[in-house]
C-alpha cells in the first residue's frame, strides 16, 4: 500500500458516497446516468468475485463490500425508489456499444484464459469506459448539478492517483500490470475534458454548463 493508492481508494469511496447521499438526500436522480451506474455495478461484480475465493486483508474485503453494496444501492435508488425522477430521455447512450467490444477484448487480451481472470479483465476494460454514458448525458443536458461535478471529479481523480500508484509500485516493487495501466490511462484521459471544465468553472463558483 502506498499514499497514492490509499488516497485513490478514499477518493473513489468519497465519489460513491457523494453520489449515494446526493440521490438519497435530494430524493432525486436528475442528471444522473442510470446506465453508468449499472455499468459500475457490473464492474464491481465481475471484479470482486474473488471475495468468495480469497482473503487479502480486512481493508481489501471491507472496501470491496462497501463498493458493491453502494453500487447496487445506487442502481436501486435510480431505477426503483426514485424512478420518477430518472431522466431517461437524456440517458440514451447505447451501452451495448461498450459492453460487447469490451467483452470481446477481454477474451482476446488477458493475462490468463481462466474465468476469474477474464472477468477481472472485462471489469478493468469496462471501468475505463463506464463513465461515458454519464458524460454523454451531461453533454446532452448541457449542464450538471455542482454536487454531480464533485462526484465526477473524485471519480476521475481516483484512477489518476492509481496511475501514480503504478509508477510507485513499478519503481519500488517491480510490480506492473499493463492491462490495468493502459485501461487506467484511457479512463483518466476520458475525464480530461471534464477536469478542465471543473477547474476553470466549478472551482470558481460557476455552474458547469456546456455550450449545448
Amino acid at each position: 500500500m502506498n499514499v497514492f493508492r490509499l488516497t485513490g481508494d478514499l477518493s473513489h469511496l468519497a465519489a460513491i458516497i457523494i453520489l449515494l447521499l446526493k440521490i438519497w438526500k435530494s430524493r432525486s436522480c436528475a442528471g444522473i446516468s442510470g446506465k453508468s451506474q449499472i455499468l459500475f455495478a457490473l464492474v464491481f461484480t465481475t471484479r470482486y468475485l474473488d471475495l468468495l475465493t480469497s482473503f487479502i486483508s480486512l481493508y481489501n474485503t471491507s472496501m470491496k463490500i462497501i463498493y458493491v453494496g453502494c453500487a447496487y444501492a445506487t442502481v436501486y435508488l435510480i431505477y426503483a425508489k426514485f424512478r420518477a425522477t430518472y431522466d431517461g430521455n437524456h440517458d440514451t447512450f447505447r451501452v451495448e456499444f461498450l459492453v460487447v467490444p469490451v467483452g470481446g477484448l477481454a477474451f482476446l487480451v488477458n493475462h490468463d484464459f481462466s474465468p476469474l481472470e477474464i472477468l477481472w479483465t472485462f471489469s478493468i476494460y469496462l471501468e475505463s469506459v463506464a463513465i461515458l454514458p454519464q458524460l454523454f448525458m451531461i453533454s446532452k443536458t448541457g449542464e450538471a448539478e455542482t454536487i454531480t461535478t464533485h462526484y465526477l471529479f473524485c471519480l476521475g481523480v481516483y484512477r489518476a492517483l492509481y496511475l501514480f500508484n503504478w509508477i510507485w509500485r513499478f519503481y519500488f516493487e517491480g510490480f506492473f500490470d499493463m492491462i490495468a495501466i493502459v485501461a487506467g490511462v484511457v479512463q483518466t484521459i476520458l475525464y480530461c475534458d471534464f477536469f478542465y471544465l471543473y477547474i476553470t468553472k466549478v472551482l470558481k463558483g460557476k455552474k458547469l454548463s456546456l455550450p449545448a
Partner: peptide, 10 residues
C-alpha cells in the same frame, strides 16, 4: 505482460 503478486488492488 505483468509482473507482480496477486490482485491486491481494488
Amino acid at each position: 505482460c505483468s509482473i507482480g503478486g496477486e490482485k491486491d488492488e481494488l
